[in-house]
């Protein structure tokens, strides 16, 4: 069967052998030494130290800080809220981006170019700006409410300072990246496959379900992992737009460290969040590895 998922630009035959010789191998190692060195000294080593610190209580090994974390109802509510926010916002952003990417894949012309440009626009807007803009737009007596009242709708209740506030900001902020990833994925779906299905009488939903989605699984997973990890670690948006409680873990962590002066608990919170991110990151890496293995 013809492998239409194979991306262009895979390794040429014999390319893998090129790095095998002495000097060149050393040069290659020297090139990666700097980034790997930075990774080890600035990220891995502090991480190991921090994780060690969380399980050492007065010099002895003890999981008691983790018990305290998982037994505290308030902390668990914050963790649950963070994960729910990440999941719901990431799925919503992914859904919208998938729609946009599909539209861009099968349309051409000036309007499509404009929509493409617009969909990437949030990439260049910092979180703090979008947060303030949303306060003025969605906030009480903000632009949206004033416009709604002009047309007679007076029951508007602002999402500012409720979980809906950060949700909307996250969705808006996280459209460009998946649009890019999914567009790249969709460009690999061959026109022939779609046309052949159409010739055999398949309708749009069937093409989506049986031709596009199976080939897009990898891109979707990658896009989901990237935005989910971004959202559960986000600080500015939930700080500015979210409710006082529950707090997202980043805001909670900052408060635990800065206001409650409790670095030990903040570290435990950080480790738990890191483990969750690592699991999602693991999916991402597995998908990437599988795809590059498939390309060979």
């Amino acid at each position: 069967m013809l492998d239409i998922t194979k991306p262009s630009g895979g390794l040429a035959p014999g390319q893998t052998q090129r790095t095998g010789h002495g000097f060149q191998a050393l040069a290659g190692l020297a090139l990666v030494a700097l980034p790997v060195g930075l990774l080890v000294t600035l990220i891995l080593w502090p991480t190991v130290r921090m994780v060690t610190a969380t399980v050492l209580v007065d010099g002895t090994l003890s999981p008691e800080r983790y018990f305290a974390f998982f037994n505290d109802a308030y902390t668990m509510a914050n963790l649950r809220y963070t994960l729910e926010m990440g999941l719901v916002s990431a799925l919503a952003a992914l859904g919208i981006s998938f729609g946009l990417a599909l539209y861009l894949r099968f349309s051409a012309g000036r309007i499509a170019t404009m929509i493409h440009g617009l969909s990437l626009f949030p990439l260049f807007v910092p979180s703090i700006i979008i947060s303030y803009a949303l306060v003025r737009f969605l906030g009480p007596n903000g632009l949206l409410q004033l416009m709604l009242e002009q047309v007679g709708f007076t029951q508007y209740r602002t999402p500012y300072l409720t979980p809906v506030g950060p949700f909307l900001a996250f969705v808006w902020e996280n459209i460009p990246l998946p649009v890019l990833v999914l567009s790249a994925g969709l460009s690999q779906v061959s026109d022939h496959a779609v046309e052949a299905a159409r010739d055999l009488g398949a309708k749009a939903p069937r093409i989506l379900w049986e031709i596009l989605l199976p080939q897009m699984r990898r891109s979707l997973l990658i896009a989901f992992a990237l935005i989910f990890m971004g959202i559960i670690g986000a600080f500015t948006v939930p700080y500015m737009l979210g409710p006082p409680a529950p707090e997202m873990m980043s805001v909670f962590m900052q408060r635990t460290l800065g206001n409650l002066h409790d670095p030990a608990s903040a570290q435990v919170q950080a480790v738990v969040l890191m483990v969750i991110s690592s699991i999602v990151g693991g999916f991402y890496i597995a998908t990437m590895v599988k795809s590059s293995a498939g390309a060979r």
């Binding site: 009480p140 007596n141 903000g142 409720t162 006082p244």
Partner: peptide, 22 residues
Amino acid sequence: TFGEGTYPAGNSPALQLLAQGA
């Protein structure tokens, strides 16, 4: 309280609610 307990996150956000007539 405003929004049934959606306390704003700081001195300025509280002033902003007053300024917006909320």
